[in-house]
Write a protein that binds this DNA or RNA. Sequence first.
DNA 1: CGCCAGGTGCTGA
DNA 2: TCAGCACATGGC
Length: 296
Amino acid sequence: MRFEIPSPDFSLRYTLECGQAFRWRRTGVWYKGFLSNIPVKVTQLAGRLIVETIDPRLTEERVRRYFALDVDLDPILASIDVDAQIHEAIGRFRGLRILRQDGWECLASFILSSFNNIARIQGMIERLCEAFGTSAGFNGYRGFIFPRPEAIAHAPESRLRELGLGFRAPYLKATARQVADGRVALDMLQRSDYAATRAALLACDGVGEKVADCVALFGFEKYAAFPIDLWMVRAMRYYFRRRRLTPRRMHDFAASHFGRYAGYAQQYLYHYVRTARSAARAPQPANQPGGRLLTA
DNA sequence: CGCCAGGTGCTGA
DNA sequence: TCAGCACATGGC
């Protein structure tokens, strides 16, 4: 099965490589991963998104929804394009969209993300899937579906630690149990507002403000969510100059400065500061106008 | 080989 | 409310 979907104002690369999702792997022009728990290969060619799978349950509607191709990006970017820094970030990464990921997978993944780096987060998640997920695949691409909360809830903590989850193992297990029990009703959150979603997620073990905002944004379409991690603090120095940076102040600022799509601004800024940093590390002729804004 | 990473929970002022 | 601290691990 093959879908070819017109994808104007969309960058598959920026969208999959900006750090919002952890399971996509690129080989050549193809990205391999899971979409609605169905293994797929995805690429973008001449303004079209191309998706291949052998599972007939996948629909074009599902694909469009996951990649947010139904979202009118231009007015969103126009609404957050309010200063020089975000303007530069938008200019560089236009086409980056906030995915609509599975809420549970997103929650579990970002619990593992705390005090961690992306490369290792990816490895941890992959081992978690191998250990507790069911196998699925086609044409040389085989992988493991992200495990259901029940599978993790019933696993011994020692087993989770063997996967290298470290101190996050008990957090993940406890949250998996809360979700499996129904104490945390994730299916309600799609229809809840940002504040209610955030509050519900904060009740989970291992979920603080940052993780709650990531899950609200990437898993539950709460575009006002503004996750503040170390990189975002760096980006926010541009706005705060000498003023003291606290999470509360940064949230308030983001809400009033960027508005109801602050989450989009966050993702563009996040990708912008991270790539600027790695570019600065790489040995290359220093004629890049990009990093200038960050040193302020 | 030290440093760092999409933070959180706990403690004591 | 808020600063200070421990927490496991491996990529770079």
